[in-house]
Amino acid sequence: MKIGIDKIGFYTPHLYVDMNKLADARKVEPEKFIIGIGQEKMSVPPITQDAVTMAANAALEILEESDREKIDYVIFATESGIDHSKAAAIYVHRLLGINPNARSIEVKEACYGATAAIHIAKGHIALNPESKVLVLGSDISRYGLNTSGEVTQGAGAVAILMSANPRIIAIEDPSAYHTEDVMDFWRPLYSNVAFVQGKYSVELYISFFQNVWEQYKKKTGLELKDFESFCFHLPYTRLGLKALKTVIDEGAEEEQERLLANFELSRSYNKVVGNIYTGSLYLSLLSLLELNTDIKAGARIGLFSYGSGAVGEFFSGIVEPDYRDFLYVERHGKLLSSRREVCISEYEEIFQETSLADISGKKFPIEKDPAVICLAGVKDHMREYVYKCNEI
């Protein structure tokens, strides 16, 4: 039985910062951000958007009533959770009107979380073939103003509907995975920004990729020539290219050209959204599938997932026939093109506003946010989510 991605959608807030202008404001050569880091724009979340609303907005566009009835598991992967106890999945479950006879949980392992969720979903569907599982990867990447990590911030969510007989990609077995207890990136409970040892994290990312790639080849007998493309977790888009270049010589010249060309397409969305942590790998996959119109059914795509701390995994998927009929290319293009650029001072003001630890008793200006689902405020320490035209 094939199990995999039946539908996939994403959401990012309606505001962004231009990296050229951020570089000028930080007195950095723009080429360092645009070329050296590989980022062109960075999504900026207003106070009316958090991990819950972004995930709900991402899922809203892909779910039909029949999906809502068959979903019996909602798995929310995030490192931007809003509660130490209650799963963010429960809020989304209600906002989307999903079948009440369902499990709803939150999972965490840095940026690896959504990959863990996909494999949990795959196991559940193997035992329950009629089930559908909603996997959500939603995050706000924050390092602070005028920090070395500022250029790798971002915000957004990816929603994936997993099912038997998927219409987009069937996930293959086996995977290769690796865990080490390291401190390359972390965010303690008392901090609303992350801490990172940048150079060390890059070294680990690349070494983990090489480790799981070697494992994968031994397990499967597959080689570089067997892949149409590789997609990477992209905290910044240049990092995936660095990893790819460490193995690219294993292929013939034609294979190298194909993999490099497809990598460029796979990072297109990430370059203008920024780092979305758990959803980053799957935004890259979506970018590849929507922008490369020549990928044929049966093509194999390699997927490298990395979550600091650290867990890495390499696995693969096979593209299904007529997969393009089930993508939302026009809708996603409009989402990105309709965003509004904010100046640096407005971005800094929004950053400070959304950094407040105590927002209880406040109302937020949802009329300024074009998203369907918004955070309207906090009352008695409870977040009030609004489905516009239908307050829930």
Rank of each mutant, 00 (worst) to 15 (best):
I3K: 04
G4K: 06
Y11D: 01
Y11S: 01
P13S: 07
Y16F: 15
V17C: 05
L22Q: 04
A23Q: 05
K27L: 15
P30V: 09
K32Y: 14
F33C: 10
I34Q: 08
G38R: 11
G38P: 01
Q39G: 10
E40M: 07
V52I: 14
T53S: 00
E64R: 03
V74E: 00
F76V: 02
T78S: 13
E79K: 09
H84A: 06
A87M: 08
V92Y: 06
L95G: 00
L95Q: 03
N99P: 04
A102C: 12
A114N: 05
I118C: 12
A121D: 05
P129G: 09
G137P: 05
D139K: 03
L145R: 15
T147H: 05
S148K: 14
Q153I: 07
A155P: 00
A155K: 07
V158W: 02
A159S: 14
R167W: 08
I169N: 08
E172H: 12
D181S: 14
F185G: 11
W186K: 05
Y190N: 14
S191K: 11
V196F: 07
K199P: 03
I206L: 09
F208H: 13
Y216P: 00
T220Q: 06
G221E: 06
L224H: 06
L224Y: 07
E228C: 06
F230E: 05
F230S: 02
F232L: 09
F232V: 11
P235V: 12
Y236F: 15
L239F: 05
K242F: 08
L244W: 01
T246D: 12
E257S: 14
L260E: 05
A261H: 13
F263T: 03
E264K: 15
E264M: 11
S266V: 07
S266Q: 12
R267L: 12
N270R: 03
N270M: 10
G274Q: 04
I276N: 02
L283P: 01
L288E: 02
L289G: 09
L291G: 13
A299N: 06
F304A: 08
A310R: 14
F314G: 00
S316F: 10
I318Q: 14
I318W: 05
Y328A: 08
V329E: 13
G333C: 07
L335K: 03
S345K: 14
E346S: 15
Y347D: 02
F351W: 08
A357V: 13
S360I: 04
G361H: 13
P365H: 03
P370H: 02
P370G: 01
V372Q: 02
H381G: 03
E384S: 10
V386R: 00
Y387F: 10
E391Y: 03
I392V: 15
